[in-house]
Design a protein around this nucleic acid. Sequence first.
DNA 1: ATTTGTGAACAGTTTCACAGCG
DNA 2: CGCTGTGAAACTGTTCACAAAT
Lengths: 201, 201
Amino acid sequence: MSAIVDIPGATRKRLLLLLNLLGVWPKDKITSVDISEQTGWKDSLIRHDLWLLGYNKGVSNGYQTVDLRDAINQALGLEAETKNCCIVGLGRLGAALLDEKLTQGSSFVIKAGFDSSLNRVEILRSSFPLYPANQMNWIIKQEGITLAVLTVEDKEAQTMTDRLVAAGVLGIVNMTRTVLKVPPSVKVENASIVNALKIIS
Amino acid sequence: MSAIVDIPGATRKRLLLLLNLLGVWPKDKITSVDISEQTGWKDSLIRHDLWLLGYNKGVSNGYQTVDLRDAINQALGLEAETKNCCIVGLGRLGAALLDEKLTQGSSFVIKAGFDSSLNRVEILRSSFPLYPANQMNWIIKQEGITLAVLTVEDKEAQTMTDRLVAAGVLGIVNMTRTVLKVPPSVKVENASIVNALKIIS
DNA sequence: ATTTGTGAACAGTTTCACAGCG
DNA sequence: CGCTGTGAAACTGTTCACAAAT
């Protein structure tokens, strides 16, 4: 088990996106300039990222697409075991995530969905079980769920977050506009569409 | 029209989230320590942000909730005119966004939805019109649409992006895993759920 | 000739320390 | 005193320039 280098956040985000590009790159060789053209990142930045990562098999010839992809996957500690996730909030947006295609080809498995409305839990069809929100604590523990996607109404966001944290979840993808209050050990990534619109406008 | 100060990206993102917090803050006064407790950001960082923004009405007493909110709104150039948006890709995720509630209370108005499947365009119900993707160019121009939310399948992502760019869109919220290639004048914010899961895990 | 690997220089961001206001 | 406003210091992230490899 090679030492997993500590990759800075900004670099990590880029490498994760690069992984997606490598997955569809048609040629078996790719250069830092190729990547730059596809992504808009400076070629020097890409080389620097890969240097931080400790990859150094590209000398003067560009990188082997597949080999680079594997190396990044390994260095980021992905591709390891699958991670169990849950969805909290089964309104229109949450229900859309019941679609398996979303996580297809990734190492994430959605193990459960929760909603505070019993009605929704009973009506919706899904490939994984749905539960009323008051069962979150024990289901999360029992299923070994470590990540959650939060798609509730804003007014419920903090309450549900508190429950997720109490149940021992390690990371939350926050699709609400609310700023979530979590202990430092829990990671939050904000992916709200309205917030994203504000950022770019 | 006061000079709109140029706010650095990191600060801008925080202020946008802070706005949401201020909207639900129960007291009429708020201090940098209050904000720190709710968000996890260092109180000194918050004061620094507000300093950059040019706000300086808080001296030694904390900030007036409503006044601060207005000031941030104004400084970020939000709250100005409404921005016209469109949704590209009406699969399960895209269809979920047809719900008006999503943009409710924001200054974004969804003017159109597009999909390359005529079938979906005809079947789905929505509060704004849906069009086949080949009409994107003129509809976007006619409706004055400047922002797009991209919720297509990954394999269509770049093609649709090219069309959006050609039609003159200025920003894209990318809900796909694909790294989009756009000219420097077009802003992209990645909000893909699977990518977000990777970031936190 | 290309294209990487490397570290130094540069730019951006966060934290610290503390003067000064109410 | 508690809390902001302020700039310097520390830190993080990006770009540049160029030697080395093929």
